[in-house]
Amino acid sequence: MAALAPDTAVGPLLRDWRRQRRVSQLELALRADSSARHISFIETGRSRPSEEMVLRLAEHLDVPVRERNVLLLAAGYAPRFTETALDDPAMDALREGLGQLLRGYEPYPAVVVDGTYTVVAANRGIALLMEGLPEKLLAPPLNAMRITLHPEGLAPRIRNLPEWRGHLLEQMGRQLALSRSPALRELYEEVAAYPLPAPRPGAARTEAAAHANGPAAMPGFALPMRIEHDGHVLSFVSSISTFNTPMDVTVAELAVETFLPADPATVKYLTSVLP
């Protein structure tokens, strides 16, 4: 069989994903119940993989759902995974379920974002933290990373901004290593270039005191985000959840981030202002 065009062939694309995942041809073959020789033939264009083989290799290489459609197209097959808009009636049950989840988590903050951190839904806890932000940052579409790290956004309110900023940029870096999203790369370069706000007077002394106060102020089990609101310093640790075995590109790229209070003072404050 003649080799496929190198720019569009599925073989080079699969080879790139394999190398990115640092998996040898032999290891991939063992995972996919194939042979290293067959994997080599696919990658060089000497063999055209079946639709099932493309999906099997993509699964074992942890290729994002959106990119699996790209691989199928490159191999000459129709895309397998739909991409349904969230406002489509077919997504009614999903939207309602996410809404119930966010409301049920109140008064603690929770937000749903897509693959480029565009805010899909948020609860009153998130709205509380965003109070007083400039309109230009709150104009749709809201972007969670931009709102958090912009020098006119939440950044000046975050007491441990260098650590939290480093955590967020590292998180985005891991995502970029797993996907090939130009939009995400553009966002990363934008927010990474934001200047750090000038330190507040006495900020260093305040942070030193927080560290000295022990676990109640700085939990040892996870990096907290310590953020000011109306004269109070709230402390949160975050958790991110995604959908298991998504069959739709839109759903595959959704993530729910919840912020768990890291000290009793944060619990008391939130329950008092968001009953």
Rank of each mutant, 00 (worst) to 15 (best):
T245A: 14
P261D: 05
A252V: 09
N213Y: 12
P219S: 06
G231A: 11
L260H: 14
E257I: 08
P224A: 07
S238K: 05
H232A: 15
E257Q: 13
V233I: 15
T250G: 10
A216L: 09
R226L: 12
F221Y: 15
E253G: 10
L254D: 02
L260V: 14
N244Q: 12
S241V: 12
A216E: 11
P215D: 07
S238W: 00
M247C: 13
D230I: 09
I227W: 01
M218H: 05
S238L: 04
V233Y: 07
A252C: 11
P215Q: 10
L254M: 06
T258H: 08
E257V: 12
F259W: 13
P246I: 06
V233R: 09
T250I: 06
L260W: 13
V249Q: 03
R226Q: 11
A212F: 07
T258F: 08
E257Y: 08
D263H: 12
L223P: 00
D263Q: 03
I227A: 01
S241K: 05
P219I: 07
S235N: 08
V251F: 01
P224Q: 05
H232K: 15
A212W: 09
N213H: 11
M247I: 13
D263Y: 08
G231L: 12
P264D: 07
S241Y: 14
V237E: 01
V251G: 03
P261F: 02
G214C: 05
S238V: 09
H232G: 01
P246K: 02
V237R: 03
A255I: 02
T250H: 02
D230P: 02
G214D: 03
N244I: 14
S239L: 14
E253M: 01
D248H: 07
T245Y: 13
F236M: 08
P261G: 06
P261W: 03
P264Q: 10
T245I: 04
P224W: 00
F221A: 08
V233Q: 08
